[in-house]
């Protein structure tokens, strides 16, 4: 099962636990017509909510991207229809290749390190030792803090003149590094902060995945004389593959969306050095005194497309696991 044992058993009546954490296919059996009415009644608030607060803003967003919305047109509501012109502008903009590359680097590097660290920690904590439960709980802290808190703390730690990081490096004879203000290190800095933020999520999910591997498998392996290293590569890693795949895909979807951390630490700068697609979209619409909603919406819609590709991959994976 998927959820941690804690969820499943948290006060649930006997027999309820194992269902937690999975979204089963609704039963196909047809109830009496009356119960369909009741079902529809209970689902109505959600349907209304989804139409008003998901579908409508998204439609407005598409509408923004195919019109030329200046701030005046925004107020007067008479923006000119321009079709895909804004998309063409976005694709031919000098920022586009940079933002696309930065998004790829930020996402891939974040995921690789978050996953590797998360997995190593999960295996370490799984081995069980005194205080391991408490320490594992402490690892959740970065994930729970408001992003603005973590991001501003990192910004101060990486401050060129007074940051603790430079001060420690200076003790090893490294000269001052302008982490957030030089084009060479800005993206690296926000990526480091983002890796730190993502480790708890990876740890928790991979740890719960590890708990589902039966202990007997390991006992059999150690009877066969397999050491910890061999056990990891021949048991843990292969058996964890489904969980790993989903962790990584979810990580991808989350990381593509990141705005807060980068915006607070570097606002995407210097220049476009740490501008990702999400940051670009945010900056065009809200980041300057001159809001430019149409290209921002175009970039945003592009981002949705990319996220959906990975999203469908994720759903596909989940479905395959359900079937097997």
């Amino acid at each position: 099962m998927t959820t941690t044992e804690a969820t499943a058993t948290a006060g649930a009546p006997p027999g309820v636990g194992p269902g937690a954490g999975r979204v089963p296919a609704p039963r196909r059996r047809r109830g009496p017509a009356a119960s369909q009415w009741a079902a529809a009644g209970f689902a109505t608030p959600l349907l209304v909510y989804l139409i008003l607060f998901y579908a409508y803003p998204l439609v407005r967003n598409i509408d923004l991207s195919v019109h030329d919305y200046t701030i005046r047109a925004f107020v007067q509501g008479n923006a000119e229809f321009v079709g895909f012109e804004k998309y063409a502008e976005v694709f031919s903009s000098a920022t586009f290749p940079t933002a696309l590359w930065n998004t790829a680097v930020f996402t891939v590097v974040s995921i690789v390190f978050q996953y590797a660290t998360g997995l190593a920690l999960a295996v370490f904590f799984r081995s069980g030792f005194r205080l391991s439960g408490l320490l594992r709980a402490m690892f959740l802290v970065p994930w729970l803090l408001p992003l603005i808190v973590s991001a501003s703390t990192w910004a101060w730690m990486l401050n060129s003149d007074n940051g603790i990081v430079n001060s420690v490096l200076a003790a090893f004879g490294v000269g001052q590094i302008n982490w957030l203000t030089s084009p060479g290190t800005a993206l690296l800095s926000v990526t480091i902060a983002n890796i730190w933020l993502g480790i708890p999520f990876n740890l928790v999910i991979l740890y719960s995945g590890l708990q589902n591997i039966p202990g007997e498998v390991y006992e059999a392996a150690s009877l066969d004389g397999a050491g910890p290293w061999k056990q990891f590569w021949s048991i843990t890693f292969p058996l964890l593959r489904p969980v790993s795949a989903i962790t990584i895909l979810l990580g991808l979807i989350y990381t593509l969306k990141v705005v807060d951390v980068i915006w607070i630490m570097t606002t995407g700068g210097p220049g476009d050095a740490s501008t990702t697609l999400a940051i670009w979209s945010y900056r065009e619409a809200f980041g300057t005194g001159q809001p430019d909603f149409s290209p921002a919406a175009a970039v945003g819609n592009l981002l949705i497309l990319i996220a959906l590709v990975f999203g469908f991959l994720h759903l596909q994976l989940q479905r395959r696991q359900e079937d097997s």
């Binding site: 959600l46 998204l58 705005v259 999400a278 619409a285 759903l315």
Partner: peptide, 25 residues
Amino acid sequence: RTLNFLLLVAQMIPAVVMAMGFYAV
């Protein structure tokens, strides 16, 4: 089943895009 699927998709939409849509609305 469709509703479940829509909810999963909804979780994938970046907040910055929602913010723009909400701003317009």
